[in-house]
Amino acid sequence: MRKLSLENLNLAFASIAAKYPLYLPQDNSAGDAEYKKWEQGAKWSDKTNTVKSPKDFFFPQTEDLMAFQVSGKSIDIIDTRKESEDFVVFGVRACDVKSFEVLDNVFLTEPADSYYASRREHGIIVSVACTRPLETCFCKAFSIDPSEPAGDVSCYKTDDSLYLSANTEKGEALLAVISEYTEEADDAAVSKQKESINKIMDRLPLASLTPASFGGGKTKEFFDAPEWKSLSEACLGCGTCTFVCPTCQCYDIKDFKTGSGVIRYRCWDSCMYSEFTKMSAGQPRTSQLERFRQRFMHKLVYYPENNNGLFSCVGCGRCLSRCPIHMNIVKVMKALGGKKDE
């Protein structure tokens, strides 16, 4: 365990930034936290979470896949990929770290997505324990412990210091970069913090939430549940929940004509959108109910079925605070999952 005095935090950031692009949650003009590149004078946000999740670093909202040059009847494919460089994402919460595992299961299973894989290899993740979980947090339901965040380096922020410990080789290398500002320390302060975090976790309003009644093989049980109607009724069909979600991974591939060529790019898509499944031959999900059901069935049933029971939700609570009509996975879980207890 290394200890870094908060007085030296900026110096440490500067040393990291001299070697790698460093991204850090910072407050924006709207009063929310967002990941921005560290520059001299940047301040690490005190907010518990960012509006957009850090999945953007590995699976960006928009990315070019390739380009084409078309002349007459012939087509040339141009590989537009650039060699990735190592980068550091600092201050990732335990839930978001877990979300990378959820995404890995999709993008790294064969055939692996090389765009994603290359960024995963080059990304160095520094996680931080949550000292102030919010009322919207329910990571515990998915067996995530915010006092034990994973990542290449885990850190704990106290009033005066930052305690860091490396979990991987990449992490060791990163700590070596700032070793001149850190000193060896015992884990007394960290243990104390963990204890206090755990106490708070028990007091959270959603502490008792559990996905136990969901999981793989339960399609039949939930698919035709009458509750979907009232749950989905007010849904606007926008993509807010999907786009702030750290685990939503659906994408679209589209072409953009630049005037001189064609860029094929990928962008986030949402199963909440009406044209998501629309074909010239028909539309399998014609109503918002079906689209809404798809999103939650995927997170709570389909995904675990294909991934050894792992749920595709990490309880970060972003959809709870951002949905325009306040409909979210917690309400869905309570409405559908509570049935069996009664």
Partner: peptide
């Protein structure tokens, strides 16, 4: 079967029927 597809490799998330 046929449903709308974008990636062809089970990642873009739109051609699922259940799991």
């Amino acid at each position: 079967m046929e449903l709308r597809m974008k990636c062809g490799i089970g990642k873009c998330g739109r051609c699922n029927i259940g799991s």
